[in-house]
Amino acid sequence: MHTSGPEKNAAVIEIVSKSFNEKLSKNYKEAFQNFAERINSGQSHALDADVAAKQNIDISLQNPATITAAVGENDKELLGYIKNSTLKQQAEMCLKTLQN
């Protein structure tokens, strides 16, 4: 089932942005716009819905069941990083990502 997720996300982000009062706008508008641009641009790089569905079904049929599973290359890279890095390295990466 295709649900037009990227369009729905963009619409909700727009609604939230327009609902900011003067104080919220002054304090958070720039950061929220940055967030909105990043999430909307990331939506276009998402894993195809049919591919993701097939991978999820394949994972659910594994016996014995897996505790963690990656769907798509980004997930595989992220899980690999988490397995092979310290909490300090992970925190540093989060801070670096938030600063970009």
Score class of each variant (00 low, 15 high):
residue 8 K to P: 01
residue 9 N to C: 14
residue 9 N to M: 15
residue 9 N to G: 15
residue 10 A to R: 08
residue 10 A to Q: 07
residue 11 A to W: 03
residue 11 A to Y: 03
residue 12 V to I: 14
residue 13 I to M: 10
residue 13 I to Q: 04
residue 13 I to S: 05
residue 13 I to E: 05
residue 16 V to N: 00
residue 16 V to L: 07
residue 17 S to D: 07
residue 17 S to N: 06
residue 18 K to P: 02
residue 20 F to A: 00
residue 21 N to K: 00
residue 22 E to R: 05
residue 22 E to P: 00
residue 22 E to D: 12
residue 23 K to T: 08
residue 23 K to A: 09
residue 25 S to K: 08
residue 25 S to C: 06
residue 25 S to I: 00
residue 26 K to D: 12
residue 32 F to M: 01
residue 33 Q to N: 15
residue 34 N to Q: 13
residue 36 A to D: 07
residue 36 A to P: 05
residue 37 E to D: 10
residue 38 R to C: 01
residue 39 I to V: 15
residue 39 I to A: 10
residue 39 I to Y: 11
residue 40 N to S: 12
residue 40 N to Y: 02
residue 41 S to L: 06
residue 43 Q to K: 11
residue 43 Q to A: 15
residue 44 S to I: 01
residue 46 A to Y: 04
residue 46 A to H: 06
residue 48 D to H: 02
residue 49 A to V: 12
residue 50 D to C: 06
residue 51 V to F: 01
residue 52 A to G: 06
residue 52 A to F: 02
residue 52 A to E: 08
residue 53 A to K: 13
residue 54 K to E: 12
residue 54 K to I: 08
residue 56 N to G: 10
residue 56 N to L: 15
residue 56 N to M: 15
residue 57 I to E: 11
residue 57 I to T: 07
residue 58 D to C: 02
residue 58 D to S: 04
residue 60 S to P: 02
residue 60 S to I: 02
residue 60 S to F: 05
residue 62 Q to N: 08
residue 64 P to Q: 03
residue 64 P to W: 05
residue 66 T to R: 15
residue 69 A to T: 04
residue 70 A to L: 00
residue 70 A to N: 01
residue 71 V to Q: 00
residue 73 E to M: 05
residue 75 D to K: 03
residue 77 E to K: 15
residue 77 E to C: 03
residue 78 L to V: 09
residue 79 L to G: 01
residue 80 G to T: 10
residue 82 I to A: 09
residue 83 K to M: 09
residue 83 K to Y: 10
residue 85 S to H: 15
residue 86 T to M: 03
residue 86 T to H: 05
residue 86 T to G: 05
residue 89 Q to H: 10
residue 89 Q to M: 11
residue 90 Q to S: 09
residue 90 Q to G: 07
residue 90 Q to D: 03
residue 91 A to M: 12
residue 92 E to C: 01
residue 93 M to R: 15
residue 95 L to E: 09
residue 95 L to M: 11
residue 96 K to S: 13
residue 97 T to L: 14
residue 98 L to S: 12
